[in-house]
């Protein structure tokens, strides 16, 4: 059974008496350990879909099922990483990473265990030297690393990421892309990663879900045929990137071959 199953999900919002459909009839499955990118233009409902998967919003129709259970509320089994980090500015790096460990549902960790666990993940994202720093003293890229460490520290099954590198410069972004890909493999996480950057999706994903707007619908789901460490300038990489680019402009009936 797939880890994540979305069955005919539709999301409507009420806006001043009118109903607005953010996305409609979305069905998809995500396997354990898969890295899935949700790709689409601004406003096509990517964040809304991710919020529905993460339990922040409930779909109007259809279902979202994770590990056999319908999603009704957020859980620290699946943690979301936001574009603007969501760090607590009044806590230092160490204390930020400990946040999710202070309210563990399963077993209360002692203070020493919390500290140890946080230190392990701070080290994993390469910020050991900044344990005592406050978010404002760190660059955007470093802050996002803290958010990643905080998410990993609760040892979730799934990471949801909503344009996590959207606010970073190109060099920092590509460094973090490398790190997130490596981390997701080492830590064996399932990742659902929202982006509007085709190169980013092709670089990271095992599978790309392409959405179209008004209302958000799935246009295509494509497996990325590239294996192992990817090279952004390799011929196959660029070729596949062009394929994905083309998909945005295809008519629906031309897409069938990619859906398999």
């Amino acid at each position: 059974m797939s880890l994540i199953q979305v069955e005919n999900a539709t999301m409507e919002f009420r806006r001043a008496d009118a109903r607005f459909t953010a996305f409609e009839n979305i069905s998809l499955t995500i396997e354990r350990g898969e890295f899935v990118c949700v790709l689409g233009a601004s406003g096509c409902g990517k964040s809304t879909l991710l919020n529905a998967l993460a339990g922040f919003l409930r779909v109007t129709r259809g279902r979202v099922v994770i590990a056999g259970q319908e999603v009704t509320a957020p859980s620290s089994k699946y943690v979301t990483i936001f574009q603007n980090y969501g760090l607590l500015p009044w806590r230092n790096v160490q204390k930020n990473v400990e946040l999710g460990l202070e309210h563990s549902k399963t077993r209360r960790l002692t203070r020493a265990e919390r500290r140890e666990r946080a230190e392990k993940y701070i080290e994993l994202v390469g910020l050991s030297a900044f344990k005592r720093s406050y978010p404002r003293q760190l660059s955007g890229g470093m802050q996002q690393r803290v958010a990643i460490a905080r998410a990993l520290a609760v040892e979730p099954e799934i990471l949801f990421m909503d344009e996590p590198f959207g606010a970073l410069d190109a060099i920092t972004r590509s460094k973090l892309q490398d790190d997130v890909r490596a981390l997701s493999q080492v830590e064996r996480k399932t990742v659902v990663f929202v982006t509007h950057d085709i190169t980013e999706a092709v670089y990271l994903a095992d599978k790309i879900v392409i959405l179209t707007p008004n209302p958000g619908r799935i246009k295509a789901i494509v497996e990325v045929p590239l294996r192992g460490v990817r090279d952004r300038v390799a011929k196959e990489f660029i070729a596949f990137q062009n394929t994905v680019f083309d998909l945005f402009h295809r008519e629906p009936d031309e897409l069938v071959e990619y859906m398999i």
């Binding site: 993460a54 922040f56 509320a73 957020p74 859980s75 620290s76 943690v79 979301t80 936001f82 603007n84 969501g86 607590l88 946040l99 999710g100 309210h103 563990s104 549902k105 609760v154």
Partner: peptide, 10 residues
Amino acid sequence: IYFKVARNFG
């Protein structure tokens, strides 16, 4: 975002 973070981390 703070409410979301709070809910997410229980």
